[in-house]
């Protein structure tokens, strides 16, 4: 099984992602998606279990996705967890910043269910394969 932490302040967006990932083979039999509605909740949830992937939005109040990413990458505990950014952010600026801070992929909203399934499968199957290029390929 795989456990994913989904950090996104829009409940509908979380439901959409959850629906898209339902039954994804890469998640395994009892794969689990843990939802966090804010950066703070993500910080709260991170120590509670071992995650195989973090998917985060960028534009969130207080602690934004980049800050969360930076925290995860600096932390000796979490720095190995692959991280996928999903964001509507139109500007290249955040995408570049995200990747520079160590994100493994960037998926621009709106994305199709297939796109997120693909990106998540790639991230879970080991990011040894060139740091999530596959996830980045669709924007």
């Amino acid at each position: 099984m795989a456990r994913i932490l989904l950090v996104e302040d829009s409940a509908a967006m979380r439901t959409y992602v959850r629906a898209a990932l339902e039954g994804l083979p890469a998640l395994g039999d009892d794969g689990e998606i843990v939802e966090a509605a804010s950066g703070f909740n993500a910080l709260r949830l991170l120590p509670r279990a071992a995650y195989d992937l973090v998917i985060t939005d960028i534009n969130m109040p207080d602690i934004n996705g980049l800050e969360l990413l930076s925290f995860v990458r600096k932390s000796p505990l979490y720095k190995e967890i692959p991280l996928l950014i999903i964001s509507t952010q139109a500007s290249e600026r955040d995408r570049e910043r995200g990747l520079a801070l160590g994100a493994d992929g960037f998926l621009a909203k709106p994305f199709t269910p297939e796109a997120i399934r693909h990106a998540v499968t790639q991230s879970l199957s080991g990011r040894g394969s060139s740091g999530g290029d596959a996830a980045r390929s669709r924007a």
Binding site: A2, R3, R48, A50, D52, E80, I81, G126
Partner: peptide
């Protein structure tokens, strides 16, 4: 215990 550096598919997941 589940705070050990997590890696994919290790026993920690079954914490």
């Amino acid at each position: 215990p589940s705070l050990a550096p997590p890696s994919r598919h290790d026993e920690v997941s079954h914490g």
